Structures are given as C-alpha cells and as structure tokens.
Simulated scan of single mutants.
Amino acid sequence: MRFRRLVRGNVEWSLLEGVGREIAKRYGRERVRVEFIDADNWLSTPCVVDDEWFVKITTDQNSLVHALFTSARNLGAFSSGTEGFFEHFADPVEMAEHELEATRRMREIGLNVPKPVEAFEYDGMGVLVMEYLPEFETFEEMEPDRVREYAPKLYGSLAVMHDNQLAHGDLRGENVLVHDGEVYFIDATGVDENRMDEVRSYDLACALAALAPLVGARDAVVAAREHYSAEELLAAREFLDFVNIRPDHDFDAASVKGEIEKLADTERQEAPR
C-alpha cells in the first residue's frame, strides 16, 4: 500500500481544496464535505463528496504511471501471440473523459455502473464525478457460495458488454462490485476498438482469473459456459498466462486451462455426428 501511495503521488492540499470549491460551485453548494479514500489505487486520488458523489482526481504523475502500465501490458500481450491492444491517454483530462464516456456507454446498453455525472479540468488535473454507491461488496469479501450465486451475473453482464462491441480492459476483483443484489462495473480502461475479438478474450480470461481462486477452476469455467461458447472459452485460454503474470491476479492458470479443455472435449464428443 505504501508503494502504491508513492507511485500515485500526493496532490497538494491547496489543489484538493480547490477541487472541492469547484465542485461546490458547479452543484450549487456553499461548501462540500470531502472524504478521501485510502483505496488500493495507482491512477488517481479518490474521494467522496457529501456522501453523494464519487470523485477521482488524476494528475500528470498518474498519467505517466498509466503510460508505463500500458507499455508493460502491451509487451505482455505478446506472450499470448498478439500485438498489444491497450491504449494510453494524452493527459489526465483525457483519462477522466474516457472513463466518463466508457461508463455512459455501458449504462446506455443497460449495464449496472455508477451514474456518470461529468469530467472536467482543474489546474491541469482531470476530475471525474460519478454517483457514489454507499454500500457494496466485492467478490473477495463474499463467502464462496455467494460468489457462485453471482458468478453467472458477472459473466452475463460481461457478455452483454461484448455483444455491444464494448470491453472493460481491466477486469479484476476490485473493479466488480455487488450493490443491491446487482453486479456493477467500475474503472474501465482504454483498448483498441479495432481489436475487439482479442480484447473480449482477454476480458473473459480476466473474469476466470478473478473467480477461480474464490470458487475453484471448475465452477468458474462452468459459470462462464452459461454465457460463452466453448470456442470463446478456448480463445480466452490463450490469454491466461498473460493475465497470470499481472500482480493483481493470483490463480492457478493450469487448472483453469485444464477445465476449459475438458469442457471443450466433452462437448465435441457429445456433438451429433
């Protein structure tokens, strides 16, 4: 956590106060109460304003770190036999605007996401304002039986996203929330929309990687099969080693691959001749 704080950097208090004053002015408040969140976040300073808005403040340092991460991920993609498909943003404001637009597009197709409000620039920083979800759980906080209950909803929502030519690009446990019994997505990243087939396979591999440690490889694959074909799971299999080298995923890739291959073999044997 200390390393993440160092990488994320510290925003001067006077600038943070200025962002608070700007939000108060924009939304007709004399003043606002700002509570900063000690989140496991590399790419912004997150806070809650008046228990109503979730705000992410992005700096030049955050943009630089994002560029380094993007380069590393694109190099890692070569391990799956494909060119990189992650995209970097020109500056902090573009980072905030992209997340706002990605969230709007997801909401338009009926996915559960925090309501997007706006993105704006303040003193060279990008400021993203969204609905604040006061109560939620992550999959890591649930008992395995509850994770099994929600796993099909996660894959179903992901399939809707993919069927509408959208992708998340950074799917991991902390970017999927359960609020009021529904699955919500947050923190989508930029990907090359001309490489959507590969990105969809990568997204599915990330979902398998997030769920397998919680419910076991077999249950993670069986739940995915409710919304994805055996062929799509085999395509995702090719990205599992890449996903496994990322520090925010820790799972047994060989077990997940084995379960995908067993499922595909069973379906081939059962197919009419």
Rank of each mutant, 00 (worst) to 15 (best):
D203F: 01
V48L: 14
V113Q: 01
V222T: 14
T189N: 13
V160W: 01
L214I: 06
G216D: 02
P92S: 07
R2L: 11
A159G: 11
R268M: 09
M125V: 02
E121K: 10
D40Y: 12
P272K: 08
D187R: 08
R246E: 11
A210G: 10
D265W: 11
A264D: 07
R195F: 02
N112T: 05
R8M: 09
E143F: 08
D203A: 03
G124Q: 00
E22W: 06
H168S: 02
A205W: 05
R33L: 15
F242I: 08
C206W: 05
R31G: 10
K262F: 02
A264M: 04
D250C: 07
P144A: 09
D250W: 05
G258M: 04
L240M: 05
L234N: 08
V191K: 01
F69D: 12
R26C: 00
E135A: 11
G110Y: 00
R104M: 10
L133S: 02
A119T: 03
I109P: 08
Q269A: 09
E118W: 00
W53R: 12
L111F: 02
V183D: 02
Y184F: 13
G216E: 02
G169P: 00
A220V: 00
H179D: 08
V34P: 06
W53Q: 01
M106R: 11
M95C: 10
S71T: 14
V183T: 03
A254L: 12
K262S: 12
A77E: 10
E108G: 04
R31H: 09
F36S: 11
N62C: 15
L133K: 05
V129K: 02
A167Q: 08
V129D: 01
E108W: 08
E261C: 00
S71Y: 15
T82M: 10
E140V: 15
Y122S: 00
H88Y: 10
R225F: 07
G28N: 09
V34E: 01
E17P: 02
E22M: 12
G81L: 09
G126L: 01
I186W: 02
C47R: 03
H168G: 05
E261L: 14
L16W: 06
R172K: 12
E198N: 13
R146S: 12
I23F: 00
T58V: 13
E118Y: 06
D51Q: 13
R33A: 15
K153R: 15
E83T: 14
L64M: 15
I186E: 00
V147Y: 01
E137N: 13
A235K: 13
R4F: 09
A188R: 13
D241M: 04
R8G: 04
V11S: 07
E97G: 04
T82Y: 11
E137I: 14
T82C: 10
G81D: 03
